[in-house]
C-alpha cells in the first residue's frame, strides 16, 4: 500500500482543497497518472499517482485537508 498525501506546497501554505477526483475508488491507475486536483489559495495542481495499483480515495471532493494529511491509498 502506497499512501498519497498532500505535499508541501510552499512555505506559506498549510492546507489545500480537494477540488476534483480524476480517478475513482477501485480504478486501476498507472504510476505518474494524474489522480486528483487540489487547490490552495495560490494555485491549483494535479497530483500524480506515486505508484501503479488500485486507488482508494480517503477524502471527499470539496474537503479541505492539511499538508501531509492522507488523500488516498494505492494498493
Amino acid at each position: 500500500m502506497v499512501p498519497v498525501v498532500v505535499p508541501q506546497l510552499g512555505n506559506e501554505i498549510s492546507e489545500a482543497e480537494v477540488t476534483e477526483w480524476l480517478k475513482a475508488t477501485g480504478e486501476t491507475v498507472a504510476e505518474g497518472e494524474p489522480i486528483v486536483t487540489i487547490t490552495t489559495t495560490k494555485m491549483a495542481m494535479d497530483l500524480e499517482a506515486p505508484a501503479a495499483g488500485v486507488l482508494k480515495q480517503m477524502v471527499e471532493e470539496g474537503e479541505i485537508v492539511e499538508v501531509g494529511a492522507p488523500l488516498a491509498e494505492i494498493e
Binding site: E17, T19, T37, T39, E61, G62
Partner: peptide, 9 residues
C-alpha cells in the same frame, strides 16, 4: 468546472 464549483462551496 471543478474550480468554479469550488467557489459555491
Amino acid at each position: 468546472s471543478s474550480a468554479l464549483r469550488g467557489l459555491g462551496r
